[in-house]
Write a protein that binds this DNA or RNA. Structure first.
Length: 825
RNA sequence: GCCGAAGUGGCGGAAUGGUAGACGCGACGGUCUCAAAAACCGUUGGGGGCGACCCCAUGCCGGUUCGAAUCCGGCCUUCGGCACCA
């Protein structure tokens, strides 16, 4: 894999400095100190067993950025830990007979070792592992605070079910109707479940103004996911059946079309279905409900499927028109949106149109389409228009009609304006073992009772059979479920479901600030100093899961008085994915590059450099063995040039004029590079920062060979260059820093500053165009004035050649850059 | 279907209204070597010309501008997200 012969021993240098930094506690972070704080967090890894290139790709550049901030003078917290609860541990346990705890902790040991080889500034004394009771105790404590605040509740609901993972999931964990983890098509299952009331924060979650710099793409995804829509909730009368429910409530965004309602559709799961169904339709209705239940979500929601349903033989009354409206059930209506019922307006909604056509339901136009003369519609008309066939509202433009009809409905008490969201409450129950037990006790007499805080943590028992059965493995534990009611002292049983692991990651950034605090989930004083996170980095796949949950949590914690801020992550940067053979690396594809192998032969810095150089970080890119050789070749050359002192170089005063000019140019160029590298690193543009350092290095050997560099300049070059290189290549830069006799450590040095006077060139290339095409380039002094520049341009022989006989009609001047000679054509 | 991002040499990419292709990879030629590797030097978008140079070229078509990879409009392709949301 390696073709480059390195002139240094990477393994030795890596080890030497990693041990030294560790011994000196160089990266130990203090909560105190005069420097401004900077909390730079990268999403913590799941301890899957081995660190792969994808981990390096997300971790090494973020370490580089954190190191850069550190050198800029910030007190930087850049912690690391493990997202240690979750299904793979259980699956491994089932497959290989290892306990999930053992499997997870062994993996963590291995990954911790591998993580150290990156040479990052992680302060390991702050590590967190969220499957340990010290951590999940606080999951339980936080759950209880949410419960007491009414933000956690339990209800029976047809929840998303993954038949393979044998557990319910949150809506956010469904990707195209499939389980986010195992890609199995999901179904629904009605169970008693714990939910967090994220919908209470829907409106606030749509407000992104508290963020400083998030990718627009993620904001848009969250906005779409929350999916706000405004409309009217209106009741259709069913009091003629003498039930407790006197109406069917529907949500509509088109209240202006209510006179066009010719049928009503309930979701098959709607609680009124059983009560309203006419006896002669019962059999057919039950068969349909059962068939819907068996369908996978993908089948049910397939848009190209024909709309089918069943008339349940009942009717409701449209209070505005007084008309009787027949009631159907159909699987395209979802119980979990709006009120689980839809008013059918076939003329103005394509789905309703298709349904009505199939069942011969009248299609009544109530919004006149443009240039419509009463003929039958070929498809639903969803455009605006004038209201017709709408009693007192005839002639109103539909847009105005929305308000007028809504007022009318509200005045009569038939309904009210309402806002509905696509976002639903976060289902956190899981019927699996390897997670945080939900700290609730069920007592037949007292109902659900929170576990008293002094009894926390509710420990996850070790001796459990954890095969998934659709019920939590804890339920069959001989001891765990049985307990005493904390309120009445009677026999009671524990909640046996565990928490979604996204619960853990919703607040872990707080725990890093005080990881061993035992009085609470975090030390409020310390957390208050560090939080919120200034810069967060990680993959975009968490847009509507982790990132949305953490925002919700933070707002809820703020309202509980536990934190003082409302947004957890002020700036967000999403790196791309590293590919191999054009595909995501995976064991099953057999295209996994193992970082350990590359680190062994190239050293950490070459791997870091390559990953940062291969393209813009946000785009990801292709892993390539020849590419990494390029990085090795470059660092090798860097080593050749900067690792040894050059005592033979002349003093600046001894240089002859020609060489003095080169010397000066090298200094100027150096300062330009400082400016560029600082700007690039600030914006995560590692690839162009490295390219700048490469360009600079390429210019040195010839100058050195010719001894056209003074000792003074050379000392400055080495000193500045190694500091620019330090965040990118921490081990080699430290080694070279030492070899040049500079005081330990390069990583404790400030990031170089540039001299603006040197950055500004003395001469510039004046580009001369004729009619927009470059015809000449002139070296002119930087202070050249407009008149002089134009004169030089017109005098240029090449310009004359191209203007020929034509008249010059205009001269465009861009100061210090360009003259465009415009001719009459 | 809707929303969003992207499209530049053989390849990864640079340039965000002013020198298109920085930097790197690969390839080719050379130096060194018995030979190879490494290293070093050179060439490397296409076409034309002996040459100085010239023409063409940033997915396609049009527009704005003295000047467009960059801004605007339309289209094509790829990727991502959402998708019977009432």
């Amino acid at each position: 894999m390696r073709q480059v012969e390195l002139r240094y021993n990477p393994a030795q240098i890596d080890r030497k400095w990693q041990e030294r930094w560790e011994r000196d506690g160089l990266y130990r972070v203090s909560d105190e100190g005069p420097r401004p704080k900077w909390y730079e967090l990268t999403m913590y890894p799941y301890p899957s067993g081995d660190l792969h290139i994808g981990h390096w790709y997300s971790l090494a550049p973020s370490d580089c950025h954190a190191r850069f901030r550190r050198m800029q003078g910030y007190n930087v917290l850049h912690p690391m830990g493990f997202d240690a609860f979750g299904l793979p541990a259980e699956n491994a346990a089932i497959k290989r007979g290892i306990h999930p705890y053992r499997w997870t902790m062994d993996n963590i040991d291995n990954m911790r070792r591998q993580l150290r080889t990156i040479g990052a500034i992680y302060d390991w004394s702050r590590e967190i592992v969220c499957c340990l009771p010290e951590y999940y105790k606080w999951n339980q404590w936080l759950f209880l605070q949410l419960y007491k605040a009414g933000l956690a509740y339990r209800t029976r609901f047809p929840a998303v079910w993954c038949p393979s993972c044998q557990t319910v999931l949150a809506n956010e964990q469904v990707i195209n109707g499939r389980c986010e983890r195992c890609d199995t098509p999901i179904t629904r299952r009605e169970l008693d479940q714990w939910f967090l009331r994220i919908t209470r924060y829907a409106e606030e979650l749509l407000d992104f103004s508290g963020l400083m710099d998030w990718p627009q793409r993620i904001i848009t995804m969250q906005r779409n996911w929350i999916g706000r829509s405004e409309g009217v909730e209106v009741g259709f009368d069913i009091s003629h059946y003498g039930l407790d429910e006197r109406e069917i409530r529907v949500f509509t965004t088109r209240i202006d079309t209510i006179f066009g309602v010719t049928f009503m559709v309930l979701a098959p799961e709607h609680p009124l279905v059983a009560r309203l169904t006419a006896p002669e339709r019962r059999q057919e209705v039950e068969a349909y409900v059962e068939a819907t239940r068996r369908e996978s979500e993908i089948e049910r929601l397939s848009t190209d499927k024909e709309k089918r349903g069943v008339n349940i033989g009942a009717y409701c009354v449209n209070r505005l028109s007084g008309e009787k409206v027949p009631i159907f059930i159909a699987d395209y209506v979802l119980l979990w949106y709006g009120s689980g019922a839809v008013m059918g307006v076939p003329a103005h909604d394509q789905r309703d149109f298709e349904f009505a056509r199939r069942y011969g339901i009248p299609i009544r136009v109530v919004i006149s389409p443009p240039d419509w003369n009463g003929e039958e519609l070929k498809e639903a008309c969803v455009e605006e228009g004038l209201m017709v066939n709408s009693g007192p509202f005839n002639g109103l433009p539909s847009e105005r009609g929305k308000d007028t009809v809504a007022d009318h409905v509200e005045e009569h008490g038939w309904g009210r304006r309402a806002v509905t969201y696509h976002l639903r409450d976060w289902l956190i129950s899981r019927q699996r073992y390897w997670g945080t037990p939900i700290p609730i006790i069920f007592c037949d007499r007292c109902g659900p009772i929170p576990v008293p805080e002094e009894q926390l943590p509710v420990l996850l028992p070790e001796d459990t059979e954890f095969k998934p059965t659709g019920e939590s493995p804890l339920a069959r534990h001989p001891v765990f479920p049985h307990t005493i009611c904390p309120q009445c002292g009677g026999q009671a049983r524990r909640e046996t479901d565990t928490m979604d692991t996204f619960f853990d990651s919703s607040w872990y950034f707080l725990r890093y600030t005080s990881p061993s605090h035992s009085e609470g989930p975090w030390d409020p004083t310390v957390a208050g100093k560090w939080c919120p996170v200034d810069q967060y980095t990680g993959g975009a796949e968490h847009a509507v899961m982790h990132l949305l949950y953490a925002r919700f949590f933070t707002k809820a914690l703020r309202d509980l008085g536990l934190v003082t801020f409302g947004e957890p992550f002020l700036r967000l940067y999403n790196q791309g994915t590293i590919l191999s053979g054009g595909a995501k690396m995976s064991k099953s594809r057999g295209n996994v590059a193992t970082p350990d192998d590359y680190v062994r032969v190239f050293g950490a810095d070459v791997v870091r450099c390559y990953l940062m150089f291969l393209g813009p970080w946000e785009q990801g890119g292709e892993w390539s063995d020849s590419g990494i050789n390029g990085a090795a070749r470059w660092l090798n050359r860097v080593w050749e040039i900067y690792s040894k002192p050059h005592p033979e170089l002349p003093k600046r005063s001894e240089l002859d004029d020609n060489y003095a000019k080169t010397d000066e140019l090298l200094r100027r160029e150096l300062h330009r590079k400082v400016k560029q590298v600082e700007n690039d690193l600030d914006k995560f543009k590692f690839n162009t920062a490295i390219a700048a350092l490469m360009t600079y290095t390429n210019a040195l050997p010839s100058a050195l060979d010719a001894r056209a560099v003074s000792k003074e300049t050379w000392d400055e070059i080495v000193n500045v260059f190694l500091r620019l290189l330090a965040p990118i290549s921490p081990h080699l830069s430290e080694e070279m820093w030492e070899k040049n006799g500079l005081p330990y450590s390069v990583h404790s040095q400030p990031f170089p500053k540039w001299d603006e006077g040197l950055v500004t060139a003395e001469t510039v290339t004046l580009v001369v165009q004729v009619d927009g095409k470059v015809r000449d380039r002139l070296q002119v002094s930087v202070g050249i004035n407009e008149q002089e520049a134009k004169r030089l341009a017109l005098e240029s022989a090449r310009v004359k050649q191209h203007t020929g006989e034509r008249t010059v009609v205009d001269l465009i001047y861009v100061p210090g850059k360009l003259v465009n000679v415009v001719t009459k054509r």
